[in-house]
Amino acid sequence: MTLLRVEGLTKYFHGLAAVQEVNFSIHLGEIVGLIGPNGAGKTTVFNLITGFLKPTQGKIIFRNEEITGLFPHQVARKGIGRTFQATRVFEEETLWQNLITGCHGWLNSGWIQGFLKTSSFMKEERASRQKAAEILDFIGLLPLKEERAKNIPQYAHKKLAIALALATEPQVLLLDEPFSGLNTHEAEGIMSLIHKICGQGVTILLIEHNMKVVKNLCERIIVLNFGQKIAEGSFHEISQEPHVIEAYLGGESVS
Protein backbone atom coordinates (compact mmCIF):
# COMPACT_ATOMS: atom_id res chain seq x y z
CA MET A 1 0.00 0.00 0.00
CA THR A 2 1.33 3.41 -0.97
CA LEU A 3 1.59 5.65 2.07
CA LEU A 4 3.39 8.68 0.71
CA ARG A 5 3.74 9.74 -2.90
CA VAL A 6 5.38 12.74 -4.52
CA GLU A 7 4.48 13.65 -8.12
CA GLY A 8 6.52 16.00 -10.26
CA LEU A 9 7.97 17.66 -7.19
CA THR A 10 9.86 20.78 -8.25
CA LYS A 11 11.43 23.62 -6.29
CA TYR A 12 13.17 26.63 -7.76
CA PHE A 13 15.33 28.97 -5.73
CA HIS A 14 15.84 32.23 -7.61
CA GLY A 15 15.48 30.49 -10.95
CA LEU A 16 17.73 27.58 -10.03
CA ALA A 17 16.14 24.16 -9.76
CA ALA A 18 17.00 22.59 -6.40
CA VAL A 19 14.53 19.77 -7.01
CA GLN A 20 13.17 18.97 -10.45
CA GLU A 21 10.31 16.68 -11.46
CA VAL A 22 10.94 14.14 -8.73
CA ASN A 23 8.52 11.22 -8.44
CA PHE A 24 8.56 8.44 -5.89
CA SER A 25 6.33 6.42 -3.62
CA ILE A 26 6.91 5.08 -0.14
CA HIS A 27 5.00 1.98 0.88
CA LEU A 28 3.73 1.00 4.27
CA GLY A 29 6.37 -0.61 6.47
CA GLU A 30 9.38 0.11 4.28
CA ILE A 31 12.78 1.54 5.14
CA VAL A 32 13.76 3.70 2.18
CA GLY A 33 17.05 5.53 1.71
CA LEU A 34 17.36 8.88 -0.06
CA ILE A 35 20.94 9.33 -1.20
CA GLY A 36 22.95 11.59 -3.44
CA PRO A 37 25.99 13.83 -3.46
CA ASN A 38 26.07 17.09 -1.51
CA GLY A 39 23.64 19.60 -2.98
CA ALA A 40 21.57 16.92 -4.69
CA GLY A 41 18.40 18.26 -3.08
CA LYS A 42 17.79 15.59 -0.45
CA THR A 43 17.07 17.91 2.46
CA THR A 44 15.04 20.15 0.15
CA VAL A 45 12.81 17.15 -0.60
CA PHE A 46 12.34 16.64 3.14
CA ASN A 47 11.54 20.33 3.60
CA LEU A 48 9.00 20.19 0.79
CA ILE A 49 7.26 17.11 2.17
CA THR A 50 7.08 18.51 5.71
CA GLY A 51 5.87 21.97 4.68
CA PHE A 52 8.97 23.94 5.63
CA LEU A 53 9.19 24.89 1.96
CA LYS A 54 6.38 25.27 -0.57
CA PRO A 55 6.95 23.43 -3.87
CA THR A 56 7.07 25.47 -7.07
CA GLN A 57 5.26 22.62 -8.78
CA GLY A 58 4.14 19.12 -8.01
CA LYS A 59 2.05 17.28 -5.49
CA ILE A 60 2.59 15.50 -2.21
CA ILE A 61 0.02 12.85 -1.40
CA PHE A 62 -0.14 11.21 2.00
CA ARG A 63 -2.65 8.39 2.54
CA ASN A 64 -4.56 9.38 -0.60
CA GLU A 65 -4.90 12.95 0.57
CA GLU A 66 -3.07 15.86 -0.98
CA ILE A 67 -1.00 17.67 1.63
CA THR A 68 0.90 20.04 -0.71
CA GLY A 69 1.28 23.51 0.81
CA LEU A 70 0.19 22.65 4.33
CA PHE A 71 2.08 24.29 7.19
CA PRO A 72 4.69 22.23 9.08
CA HIS A 73 2.57 21.85 12.19
CA GLN A 74 -0.34 20.62 10.06
CA VAL A 75 1.88 18.09 8.29
CA ALA A 76 3.10 16.87 11.69
CA ARG A 77 -0.48 16.43 12.82
CA LYS A 78 -1.30 14.43 9.68
CA GLY A 79 1.25 11.84 10.77
CA ILE A 80 4.59 12.71 9.18
CA GLY A 81 7.40 13.06 11.72
CA ARG A 82 10.92 14.22 10.97
CA THR A 83 14.30 15.00 12.44
CA PHE A 84 16.75 17.63 11.29
CA GLN A 85 20.40 17.13 10.46
CA ALA A 86 21.25 19.46 13.34
CA THR A 87 19.07 18.04 16.08
CA ARG A 88 16.21 20.28 17.09
CA VAL A 89 14.98 19.64 20.63
CA PHE A 90 14.08 21.83 23.60
CA GLU A 91 17.58 22.33 24.99
CA GLU A 92 16.66 24.01 28.26
CA GLU A 93 14.22 21.33 29.34
CA THR A 94 14.81 17.89 30.78
CA LEU A 95 14.31 14.86 28.54
CA TRP A 96 11.12 14.12 30.39
CA GLN A 97 9.77 17.65 29.81
CA ASN A 98 10.79 17.40 26.16
CA LEU A 99 8.68 14.32 25.70
CA ILE A 100 5.74 15.67 27.69
CA THR A 101 5.76 18.76 25.49
CA GLY A 102 6.04 16.54 22.43
CA CYS A 103 3.12 14.36 23.43
CA HIS A 104 1.18 17.51 24.27
CA GLY A 105 1.95 19.61 21.21
CA TRP A 106 -1.66 19.33 20.28
CA LEU A 107 -4.25 17.88 22.55
CA ASN A 108 -7.87 17.55 21.76
CA SER A 109 -8.97 19.63 24.69
CA GLY A 110 -8.31 23.35 24.34
CA TRP A 111 -6.31 25.56 26.63
CA ILE A 112 -9.30 26.76 28.64
CA GLN A 113 -9.99 23.17 29.60
CA GLY A 114 -6.32 22.86 30.50
CA PHE A 115 -6.58 25.88 32.75
CA LEU A 116 -9.71 24.59 34.42
CA LYS A 117 -8.30 21.07 34.57
CA THR A 118 -11.46 19.40 33.29
CA SER A 119 -11.72 15.64 33.50
CA SER A 120 -11.17 15.14 29.77
CA PHE A 121 -8.03 17.25 30.01
CA MET A 122 -6.74 15.33 33.01
CA LYS A 123 -7.37 12.08 31.17
CA GLU A 124 -5.31 13.29 28.22
CA GLU A 125 -2.66 14.59 30.58
CA ARG A 126 -2.33 11.17 32.18
CA ALA A 127 -2.26 9.50 28.78
CA SER A 128 0.49 11.80 27.54
CA ARG A 129 2.59 11.20 30.66
CA GLN A 130 2.31 7.49 30.13
CA LYS A 131 3.16 7.87 26.45
CA ALA A 132 6.19 10.02 27.27
CA ALA A 133 7.50 7.37 29.66
CA GLU A 134 6.88 4.60 27.13
CA ILE A 135 8.74 6.42 24.36
CA LEU A 136 11.72 7.23 26.60
CA ASP A 137 11.87 3.60 27.62
CA PHE A 138 11.51 2.39 24.02
CA ILE A 139 14.36 4.65 22.88
CA GLY A 140 16.51 3.68 25.87
CA LEU A 141 16.73 7.14 27.40
CA LEU A 142 14.69 6.54 30.53
CA PRO A 143 17.74 6.64 32.86
CA LEU A 144 18.57 10.14 31.57
CA LYS A 145 15.08 11.55 31.90
CA GLU A 146 15.93 14.17 34.52
CA GLU A 147 18.89 15.54 32.55
CA ARG A 148 18.57 18.74 30.58
CA ALA A 149 18.80 18.17 26.84
CA LYS A 150 21.75 20.54 26.49
CA ASN A 151 23.80 18.43 28.91
CA ILE A 152 23.51 15.01 27.31
CA PRO A 153 26.06 13.55 24.85
CA GLN A 154 25.57 13.77 21.11
CA TYR A 155 24.47 10.17 20.71
CA ALA A 156 21.72 10.58 23.31
CA HIS A 157 20.83 13.89 21.72
CA LYS A 158 20.23 12.20 18.36
CA LYS A 159 18.07 9.61 20.04
CA LEU A 160 16.12 12.35 21.82
CA ALA A 161 15.35 14.03 18.51
CA ILE A 162 13.97 10.72 17.24
CA ALA A 163 11.99 10.27 20.45
CA LEU A 164 10.50 13.73 20.06
CA ALA A 165 9.50 12.91 16.49
CA LEU A 166 7.84 9.72 17.73
CA ALA A 167 5.84 11.66 20.32
CA THR A 168 3.40 12.82 17.65
CA GLU A 169 2.74 9.17 16.69
CA PRO A 170 3.84 9.51 13.07
CA GLN A 171 3.08 6.93 10.41
CA VAL A 172 6.09 8.00 8.39
CA LEU A 173 9.34 9.14 9.95
CA LEU A 174 11.76 11.23 7.90
CA LEU A 175 15.30 11.07 9.29
CA ASP A 176 17.88 13.53 7.99
CA GLU A 177 21.34 11.95 8.34
CA PRO A 178 20.67 10.15 11.60
CA PHE A 179 24.19 8.67 11.66
CA SER A 180 26.29 11.75 11.00
CA GLY A 181 28.93 12.39 13.63
CA LEU A 182 28.50 9.01 15.33
CA ASN A 183 31.10 6.28 15.80
CA THR A 184 30.53 2.75 14.45
CA HIS A 185 29.20 1.45 17.73
CA GLU A 186 26.73 4.32 18.11
CA ALA A 187 25.67 4.04 14.47
CA GLU A 188 24.82 0.40 15.09
CA GLY A 189 22.70 1.48 18.06
CA ILE A 190 20.73 3.91 15.87
CA MET A 191 20.41 1.24 13.19
CA SER A 192 18.84 -1.25 15.54
CA LEU A 193 16.64 1.55 16.86
CA ILE A 194 15.41 2.25 13.33
CA HIS A 195 14.60 -1.44 12.87
CA LYS A 196 12.76 -1.39 16.18
CA ILE A 197 10.73 1.68 15.15
CA CYS A 198 9.93 0.05 11.82
CA GLY A 199 8.85 -3.04 13.74
CA GLN A 200 6.24 -0.86 15.46
CA GLY A 201 4.66 -0.18 12.09
CA VAL A 202 6.33 3.15 11.34
CA THR A 203 7.53 3.62 7.76
CA ILE A 204 10.97 5.19 7.40
CA LEU A 205 12.55 7.48 4.82
CA LEU A 206 16.12 8.48 5.60
CA ILE A 207 18.88 10.58 4.12
CA GLU A 208 22.30 9.04 4.43
CA HIS A 209 25.82 9.34 3.04
CA ASN A 210 27.38 6.19 4.41
CA MET A 211 26.95 3.49 1.74
CA LYS A 212 27.54 0.64 4.14
CA VAL A 213 24.70 1.83 6.35
CA VAL A 214 22.37 2.27 3.40
CA LYS A 215 23.26 -1.17 2.09
CA ASN A 216 22.49 -2.85 5.39
CA LEU A 217 19.45 -0.84 6.36
CA CYS A 218 17.41 0.12 3.32
CA GLU A 219 15.21 -2.17 1.31
CA ARG A 220 14.89 0.43 -1.39
CA ILE A 221 17.03 3.38 -2.38
CA ILE A 222 16.23 6.57 -4.27
CA VAL A 223 19.21 8.39 -5.77
CA LEU A 224 19.14 12.11 -6.44
CA ASN A 225 21.67 14.16 -8.36
CA PHE A 226 21.38 17.87 -9.18
CA GLY A 227 17.79 17.80 -7.98
CA GLN A 228 16.70 14.98 -10.24
CA LYS A 229 16.00 11.34 -9.52
CA ILE A 230 18.58 9.28 -11.39
CA ALA A 231 17.88 5.81 -10.02
CA GLU A 232 15.64 3.81 -7.75
CA GLY A 233 15.76 0.23 -6.55
CA SER A 234 17.56 -2.17 -4.25
CA PHE A 235 21.17 -1.45 -3.32
CA HIS A 236 22.26 -4.13 -5.76
CA GLU A 237 20.25 -2.55 -8.57
CA ILE A 238 21.34 1.03 -8.05
CA SER A 239 24.97 0.07 -7.62
CA GLN A 240 24.92 -1.33 -11.16
CA GLU A 241 23.52 1.86 -12.66
CA PRO A 242 26.18 3.70 -14.65
CA HIS A 243 24.52 7.07 -13.81
CA VAL A 244 24.85 6.39 -10.14
CA ILE A 245 28.39 5.14 -10.35
CA GLU A 246 29.37 8.20 -12.32
CA ALA A 247 27.44 10.86 -10.42
CA TYR A 248 27.48 9.66 -6.91
CA LEU A 249 30.56 7.55 -6.65
CA GLY A 250 32.85 9.51 -8.88
CA GLY A 251 33.27 6.80 -11.48
CA GLU A 252 34.38 4.02 -9.15
CA SER A 253 32.30 0.91 -8.76
CA VAL A 254 30.39 0.20 -5.59
CA SER A 255 30.42 -2.90 -3.53
Binding site: T50, F52, F71, H73, R88, V89, F90, T101, T168
Partner: peptide, 17 residues
Protein backbone atom coordinates in the same frame (compact mmCIF):
# COMPACT_ATOMS: atom_id res chain seq x y z
CA UNK B 1 8.14 27.90 26.04
CA UNK B 2 8.56 25.29 23.33
CA UNK B 3 8.32 27.88 20.53
CA UNK B 4 10.65 30.18 22.47
CA UNK B 5 13.31 27.50 22.77
CA UNK B 6 13.19 26.00 19.31
CA UNK B 7 10.68 27.09 16.73
CA UNK B 8 11.44 24.21 14.32
CA UNK B 9 11.19 21.57 17.02
CA UNK B 10 7.87 23.07 18.11
CA UNK B 11 6.57 22.86 14.54
CA UNK B 12 7.62 19.23 14.36
CA UNK B 13 5.52 18.31 17.35
CA UNK B 14 2.51 20.03 15.79
CA UNK B 15 2.46 23.35 17.63
CA UNK B 16 0.70 26.07 15.63
CA UNK B 17 3.11 29.02 15.82
Amino acid sequence: RAVGQDREAALLIGVNP
